[in-house]
Amino acid sequence: MSRIYGLVAEFDTAEALLRGAEAAREAGYRRVEAYSPFPVHGMAEVLEHDDPRLPWAVFIMGVIGCATGFGLESWTAVINYPFNIGGKPTFSWPNFIPVAYELTILFSAFTAGLSMLVLNGLPRYHHSIFNTPRFERASSDLFFLCIEARDAKYDPEETAHFLENLGAQLVSEVEK
């Protein structure tokens, strides 16, 4: 039993995948994941994938970026090495805006990109789902719905039957 990752159903359209995912959620399955060659809209809501951490991380790092830029400029120009250039005030803050602005963008952009990867657990060397037959077509034209073996409601016979009834072209048991 522990050698099995889950049961994977194969569909040929995004609509079928979405309906399958909805049916699986309604049937009470919780460890359900859909694999598609492009983002299927509505899927995140059906599977309740909603991660507020990413936007918050971006916002917080953006604020830190802005503070870093403005803080560095103010500290170096006012405290660490005040320097009279053309009689301008040392704390000439309007001139500090462009650098603070660019650092805000730099910090938040890299946070968006990198936290997407980190929260998704990427890069990753291997994953059990790749043992699925024909899964190489999940990046071209096939859609897969996986009910994982660790789901409380998982039963090899009953779950396979459930997936077949969804109109799957192929249901396969996938090893870890």
Partner: peptide
Amino acid sequence: SLGWRGAAEHWQRYETASLIL
């Protein structure tokens, strides 16, 4: 490809990140 497998959870974060970027 960093092990990309097209999971719905990944696409969701991917699209959020793309939109923010």
